[in-house]
């Protein structure tokens, strides 16, 4: 057997190695090629053992579910702004309005966070010219106010790129 070698032997002709080494005996048909992915839910050969039970497990389960529920109601859970409705409904007026897109609902300690994360809340302007504001591009709008602010603020920070930082402290 060793003399003839596995190579170039009849049917197994395409194999570059001794097929017997992988457990296919002489004269046995090669397994058919696999043409499809393995099943998504393959049958279980061994049934899983039951889960642990007991007070500890029960309590931890309750804690897990409570925690998940609690997290959903905290301000850290950022809900995407509600999609625009197809038609304006009468009842919309009485629905609780969702969070404003650019307002943060909790109060982070800004001393611990990079300056650039500070979100500018535009309350005063909003009341005055609500419609115009929406037309503004975010960046343009900021830069415009930056200029005014730095101009009318103290003169010390005038010029240079330091006023880029200053405006955030003002808001």
């Amino acid at each position: 057997m060793a003399g003839r070698g596995g190579r170039g032997r009849g049917r197994g002709g395409h194999m570059t190695f001794n097929v017997e080494a992988v457990g296919i005996g002489k004269g046995e048909a090669l397994p058919p090629p696999t043409l499809q992915p393995s099943p998504l839910f393959p049958p279980l050969e061994y049934k899983p053992v039951p889960l642990q039970t007991g007070e500890e497990v029960e309590y931890m389960l309750a804690l897990k579910q409570e925690l998940r529920g609690a997290m959903k109601n905290l301000p850290y859970f950022i809900k995407p702004s509600a999609p625009k409705k197809d038609v304006e409904r009468y009842s919309d007026k009485y629905q609780m309005s969702g969070p404003v897109d650019n307002a943060i609902e909790w109060s982070p300690d800004w001393r611990r966070l990079p300056q650039e994360l500070k979100i500018r809340v535009r309350k005063i302007r909003k009341q005055r010219k609500e419609e115009e504001e929406e037309a503004y591009d975010e960046e343009e709008y900021e830069e415009e106010t930056d200029y005014i602010m730095s101009y009318f603020d103290n003169g010390e920070d005038f010029g240079g790129d330091s006023d880029d930082n200053m405006d955030e402290a003002i808001y």
Binding site: I78, L117, E138
Partner: peptide, 16 residues
């Protein structure tokens, strides 16, 4: 995503 959304998300992630 909008800059403000990213800011908000980062604040939350840093907080936690």
């Amino acid at each position: 995503m909008s800059l403000d959304q990213v800011r908000k998300a980062l604040c939350v992630l840093i907080q936690h």
